[in-house]
């Protein structure tokens, strides 16, 4: 089960708040976050890591990132 948060076009701290909310309150163990700035990428990684999640980042099209988050079971 996976849920996608499309945070492209959103500025800080919105991508982080959406990610934290999904990690804390969502039911899906896997979360995919799409962001389009380096600072959003950095902070979403910080957010997920702070909640004990496993994080993997892959660049997609230029300047965009797909951040795969695996919640702690």
């Amino acid at each position: 089960m996976s849920v996608t948060i499309d945070a492209r076009g959103l500025s800080c701290p919105q991508p982080v708040l959406l990610t934290l909310n999904e990690i804390r309150n969502g039911n899906d163990p896997q979360i995919l976050v799409l962001v389009d700035t380096d600072t959003s990428k950095e902070n979403v990684i910080r957010a997920a890591a702070s909640q004990g999640c496993e994080v993997n980042v892959e660049p997609s099209v230029s300047g965009e990132y797909r951040i795969a988050i695996q919640k702690d079971k």
Binding site: C12, V16, T39, R46
Partner: peptide
């Protein structure tokens, strides 16, 4: 909170 990525946009 900074460790959780909670920066205001202005910081960047």
């Amino acid at each position: 909170f900074a460790g959780m990525g909670l920066f205001p946009g202005g910081a960047f």
